[in-house]
Computed example of a mutant assay.
Amino acid sequence: MALVYHKELDLSTSFAIWKIEESADELLAQLQLKEHEFSYLETLISGKRNLHWLSTRVLLRTMMNTDEYIDCQVDSSGKPYLTNFPHHISLSHSYDYAAVMISKHKAVGIDIELIKDKIERIAHKFMNREELSFIDQDRIEHLYVCWCAKEAIYKLHGKKNISFLDHIRISPFSYEGAGSFQTSLETEKQINTYTVHYDKFEGYMIGYVADNE
């Protein structure tokens, strides 16, 4: 697996992107899995799903830079967390790439997506009218930034009761290939604001966010 992208947001927060080039056996050889993890792997269809799960764990181990066993669990909402390290984590994958974001002190969220024209057909399902009105001439890329941003916010929040369309708001911004913009997560209890960052890489879009606190 080759490291193709790495970025530090601050002294305790960073993310990395890897290109998946190994077989499942080669990835397995780099991990310290226990019985419950092998049992879960057996439920996955061989191929990309298997490779995605393994590659995010190998990348996580690489970023943590440890030889210790990493107990990566998933809560009832599907949010991954570590039981034996203090770090917050977020995992993502798309086709030939895996992404991991970690922070010692902040909740984080990351999403990576292969850019495809089909996103225009579903834009109305995750963007409201006000948000769609600021999409500029680079429509496909601009829409993917918005999708990745909302996915990253969703992962940071980590609860199932959040709707991309109804709860996550994106402030108007111009697409420039890389940059940042303001977003908000609006629930019945409170409104939280975030700065989401994005980068385009090798035909993929990356959106990532760290908690302001």
Rank of each mutant, 00 (worst) to 15 (best):
K48E: 11
K79R: 14
E26K: 12
L82W: 04
Y97F: 13
A99E: 10
D96Q: 12
Y198P: 05
H36V: 12
K116W: 03
S103W: 03
K7Y: 09
I122S: 05
V58Q: 05
H167Q: 14
P172M: 02
S133R: 06
H105M: 12
I170P: 05
Q190H: 15
H124M: 05
D10G: 01
H36S: 15
D96L: 02
K34L: 14
H52D: 12
I206Q: 03
D96T: 07
E213G: 13
A24C: 06
L54G: 04
S14Y: 01
E22C: 08
S163Y: 03
I70Q: 08
Q137A: 09
L41H: 07
V145I: 13
N128V: 01
Q30L: 15
Y97A: 01
S77C: 14
M64W: 03
K150H: 02
K200H: 15
N84C: 12
L91N: 11
Y154Q: 00
S94V: 04
S55Y: 00
F85K: 15
E8V: 06
T62L: 05
E151R: 09
K155I: 00
G203D: 09
H124Y: 12
W53I: 01
I168D: 02
K200G: 15
Y175Q: 05
E35R: 11
R139Y: 04
S76L: 14
I112F: 01
H167T: 07
F201D: 00
N65S: 12
E42M: 06
H87G: 04
F164G: 00
L9S: 03
L185P: 07
P80R: 13
D211V: 04
S55G: 01
S180E: 13
M63N: 02
A29P: 02
S39H: 05
V100F: 08
Y204K: 11
K150N: 01
N65A: 14
K79D: 03
M1N: 05
D67T: 13
D96E: 14
E131D: 06
I170F: 04
L51C: 02
G109Y: 00
T83Q: 14
E131C: 07
K7S: 03
H105V: 14
L91M: 13
S180D: 11
H93Q: 06
L114S: 11
S90G: 10
K34G: 10
L185I: 10
D10P: 01
L11A: 13
Y194R: 08
I112P: 04
D25Y: 03
K106Q: 13
H87T: 04
I70R: 07
I102F: 07
I115E: 12
Q190G: 01
V145F: 09
I89H: 05
T66D: 07
Q137H: 11
K104P: 03
F15S: 04
R49M: 03
I17S: 00
L41Y: 07
F164L: 11
S39T: 10
N128I: 01
K150E: 00
L91R: 12
S171M: 13
I70G: 08
W147T: 02
I206N: 04
E120V: 14
I162D: 05
A210C: 12
R169D: 07
I89L: 15
N128Q: 01
L114Y: 14
G177Q: 09
H88S: 12
S174E: 15
V145M: 09
V4Q: 07
K125C: 05
N128F: 02
M101P: 11
E130C: 10
L165S: 00
